[in-house]
């Protein structure tokens, strides 16, 4: 089993952006589908206001705020990579795909993540009032 896994890992060129982007897109996509289902389950509690407010109170705890920042990172990765994929589909920047991945998806994505996560970290975790 371990040899099969190591063979799989060695079989593909991980240093190339496209393969890495493919796995990022796949894993974040699966994670977001899972989150969507959980989210719909929470939203269903709108039928019972007390239960809904209790759920929201739980989700404003620092641990869940940290999870929210992680969710933001997942969304940004999936979205920026999705824009890159749409560009590939349209035939834009095919010869510069590594630069597009590293500078656009990862670089601009990291900048957006910091911009979005900083207020969430400051107001959700540092200045959290129970």
């Amino acid at each position: 089993m371990t040899s099969a896994i190591s063979l799989t890992i060695r079989k593909y060129s991980w240093k190339y952006a496209g393969n890495l982007a493919f796995w990022i897109q796949r894993l974040t996509g699966l994670g977001l589908v899972f989150y969507l289902i959980l989210h719909v389950h929470t939203i269903h509690d709108l039928r019972d206001p007390a239960k809904f407010d209790a759920a929201l109170a739980t989700f404003s705890k620092p641990f869940f705020k940290l999870g929210e920042i992680f969710l933001l990172a997942t969304v940004i990765l999936h979205a920026m990579n999705g824009i890159r994929l749409t560009m590939v589909d349209m035939g834009v920047g095919l010869t510069k795909q590594r630069q597009v991945f590293w500078y656009f998806t990862i670089g601009l994505g990291a900048a957006l993540l910091i911009a979005g996560a900083l207020p969430m970290f400051i107001y959700g975790i540092l200045r959290h009032q129970p």
Binding site: Y16, A21, L85
Partner: peptide, 10 residues
């Protein structure tokens, strides 16, 4: 095809 670009690299 999910545009892994492995073929282009190879």
């Amino acid at each position: 095809c999910h545009t892994q670009f492995n073929c282009v690299a190879a």
